[in-house]
Simulated scan of single mutants.
Amino acid sequence: MGKRSLQEAQTVDLDAACREHAAGLRAITRKVRDDEADLAQDACLKLVETARREPVAAPAHLLFRIARNLVIDRMRSRGRAARLFQEATAYEQQPSSAPDPERALLANERLRRALSVIDGMPDRRREAFLLHRIDGLSYPQIARRMGVTVKAVEKHISAAMLQLARGMRTDDGDD
């Protein structure tokens, strides 16, 4: 059997493993209610990506480990977002005399600069960056939504982070 037919055979095996364990995947991803179908699909995609790089001896075991890790990552991401929201809400509820006006002014200025840099990004770069940083989507989810490869998403977000860092550093030095 040639290399190509071995890969095709393993892809069929992986597809069968995903279908065979769909109920188990749903049980694991159910903790992340509205994203459970996406997480189950992402787990299957990551399994296939892993199998392209190296042989997978126990696809079901790896599939469940990937799904569990995706759930943990999503819950951590939501926890961070919830903490940021709580901090912002707590900050807004403080008496107006409590925050230092100079710090508030500097924070607002940095936010204005960051938004300006983000607005100046090319459309696809900005879209990938916002989907990841604001909407909390994973690279594979962004790739599907934008119709590009995961590698392209990685490049867009890397370029966006670099542009943002440079834009903030340049503005900081101008003051």
Rank of each mutant, 00 (worst) to 15 (best):
L25Y: 04
R33S: 03
R26I: 06
H21K: 11
L47P: 00
K46W: 04
V32M: 04
R65I: 10
L62C: 10
A40D: 05
E20M: 13
R65L: 12
A43E: 02
Q41E: 12
A37Q: 10
R65S: 10
R26L: 11
R65D: 06
D42E: 09
A60V: 15
L45W: 01
C44P: 00
E54L: 15
A51E: 07
A27I: 08
D35H: 06
P55H: 14
A57M: 07
D42I: 01
P55T: 15
A40L: 08
H61T: 15
V56L: 10
G24L: 09
L39I: 06
A67W: 00
A67R: 00
A23S: 11
P55E: 15
Q41Y: 06
D35I: 01
L45M: 08
E36P: 02
I66G: 01
L62G: 05
C44V: 03
T29H: 02
L47K: 02
I66C: 02
A22K: 13
E49C: 10
R30W: 07
F64I: 15
I28T: 07
P59A: 12
T50H: 00
L62I: 11
R30K: 13
D34Q: 12
P59L: 08
D38R: 00
I66L: 11
R68I: 09
E49R: 09
D34V: 09
L63W: 02
D38W: 00
D35N: 07
V48K: 04
R53E: 14
C44G: 04
A58V: 15
A27S: 11
E36A: 08
E20Y: 11
A40E: 05
R52D: 14
L39S: 01
Q41M: 08
D34K: 10
K31P: 02
P59K: 04
R26P: 01
K31W: 07
A58S: 15
A57P: 02
L45C: 06
C44I: 03
P59I: 07
R52H: 14
A27D: 12
E49H: 09
E36K: 07
R33F: 00
D42Y: 01
A60F: 12
V48E: 08
H21R: 11
R68W: 09
A27G: 10
D42V: 02
R33L: 02
R26V: 05
V48N: 05
A67I: 03
A40M: 08
A58K: 15
C44E: 00
